[in-house]
């Protein structure tokens, strides 16, 4: 069976229907559904090392950086497991790309742990299958091709989420020495996102068209992306910046205008999205 067919199945209702008991969870990826809400609770507190920090006691930069560290833990572990899974075609572009991104995400973890010092948190325990919904590492017999499609889809969702989450925290870091480093990570996540989007498109046979872009059009998650990832893209369709409707101020349409600006997400939204993959 070819990859496109698998991707179609991957996105089809039948896949979500197959595990209908988890349908609600799946459908609330990022929207504070039951599981997401529960999962979001231990966020930050998952560090059972006795450092249960009171929110009020945190310094200005600590909460944003703890959120960032949690997202980096998520990404770092995901890429390490992806590279260990044997799902990626060996020796090709995908493996090189995942290796490079893995290197950066692991470096970000170390960088943020150092920056946070005593306020650092331990890694949560992640479940990238979301209770059996996904099988990106082909651990449960889903097969290499479906697993590969899921590896690419999850990577895209994580990277596009990372870009929005860092952007959303920039204002909270103003006036601290951590703003610039956060911006320096933010743009790296955007480079990752662009490449993963283009890699995923090429694997699907999409090249040189609207489905093969490194940037986000309107709030489109793109072909082959599970409906569950829509929360990652909600709000990206904005065309008004600084009070200026740029579809009126320029001769370009909403597609081009929306592509030209990435939108932030709140810490709560970022936690909810990440929380879906956090067991404890």
């Amino acid at each position: 069976m070819n990859i496109i067919k698998f991707l179609d199945e991957f996105t089809s209702e039948s896949l979500t229907g197959k595990v209908s008991s988890r349908r609600d969870v799946f459908g609330t990826f990022g929207s504070l559904g039951k599981k997401a809400a529960l999962a979001a609770v231990p966020f930050g507190l998952a560090t059972s090392s006795g450092k249960a920090f009171a929110q009020a006691g945190l310094k200005q930069h600590e909460e944003p950086l703890q959120l960032a560290l949690t997202l980096e833990y998520l990404e770092a572990e995901f890429y390490i497991k992806a590279l260990d899974s044997g799902v990626l075609p060996s020796g090709g572009r995908a493996e090189a790309v995942y290796n490079q991104i893995s290197k950066h995400e692991s470096a970000h973890v170390e960088f943020l742990k150092t920056a946070l010092g005593d306020a650092s948190i331990d890694s949560p325990t992640f479940d990238f299958t979301v209770g059996g919904m996904f099988d990106p590492f082909n651990e449960n017999g889903t097969g290499q091709e479906v697993a590969y499609a899921q590896l690419l889809a999850l990577a895209q969702a994580f990277e596009d989420t990372g870009v929005r989450a860092y952007k959303g925290q920039a204002g909270n870091l103003m006036g601290t020495p951590y703003l610039t480093p956060a911006l320096q990570i933010h743009s790296v996540e955007a480079k990752h996102a662009s490449e993963i989007r283009r890699l995923r498109a090429s694997v699907m046979g999409e090249v040189g068209n609207e489905n093969a872009l490194g940037w986000i059009t309107l709030d489109n998650r793109g072909p082959g992306m599970p409906e569950a990832t829509q929360a990652v893209y909600d709000g990206e369709q904005n065309v008004t910046q600084g009070g200026v409707d740029l579809t009126m101020a320029t001769s370009f349409d909403a597609k081009a205008v929306s592509q030209s600006f990435d939108e932030p997400i709140s810490g709560e939204t970022a936690k909810a999205i990440a929380g879906l993959f956090i067991v404890s």
């Binding site: 870009v163 860092y166 952007k167 920039a170 204002g171 911006l183 933010h186 743009s187 790296v188 996540e189 955007a190 480079k191 990752h192 996102a193 662009s194 490449e195 490194g214 940037w215 910046q241 600084g242 592509q259 030209s260 600006f261 990435d262 939108e263 932030p264």
Partner: peptide, 15 residues
């Protein structure tokens, strides 16, 4: 925030 909205698009371009 506005600068942040633009810089990530520039980074997507660079990539």
């Amino acid at each position: 925030t506005l600068a942040g909205k633009i810089v990530s698009v520039e980074a997507r371009h660079a990539s």
